[in-house]
Amino acid sequence: MNISVITFPGSNCDRDVITAAAEITGKQPTAVWHKDTDLGNPDLVIIPGGFSFGDYLRCGAIASKSPAMDEVIEHSLRGGMVMGICNGFQVLVETGLLPGALIRNKGLKFVCRDTNLKTHQHGKDIMAGFQDGEEMVIPVAHNEGQYFADDDTLKRIQDNGQIAFTYTPMGDETDYNPNGAALDIAGITSENGRVLGMMPHPERKMSDTVGGADGRRLLTAIIEASQS
């Protein structure tokens, strides 16, 4: 199992993702610097969170044009698995590998809190390890995480089953969507089901010590799906 993790200047969850992946697989992932063009023949590429290039211009925009991302696009066009978390999701929509855009949170403030996620796809591709309707508590931490797409695109991704995760109420919670995302979308996949982008950070919930192990479950499922 080869996992490659891309680091841009300003990435700040690269170490966390590498630690989490190593814990799950028992094998150290390959750290790829944004100027590198050799991804190391990965089964799965993870683009971690952070503030690549300071979020200047638009979140993820400058990173999406880096040499390493050209290789990630190639890898994806060959049917390779790619996962983008938070800023990684923003990078993926900027490359066009995923539809839509991520815009400023509705509340105009950075938001860091636990969210309850529900899965919507199962049994195939990068989401192969999930049952439909599974719930997991995973934290978000972002300023620009409101998923946006025009109505046609929203309809298309719904019809294609590209919605991977939505924010869903915990009990009788009403304020469950942290950023105003359309259709409560927290994560989507590409049309071929092999590229996943999500705002919440599974690498931050790896054990009960840090408040829960749902993130480990989520990452394990993605990694196992990438192996087959």
């Binding site: 211009l57 638009r58 925009a61 400058i62 044009k65 929509v93 900027e94 539809p99 839509g100 855009a101 815009i103 946006f148 797409a149």
Partner: peptide, 9 residues
């Protein structure tokens, strides 16, 4: 088209 603008939004 390449960098400065995200034409999705």
């Amino acid at each position: 088209e390449t960098l400065l603008v995200n034409t999705v939004i």
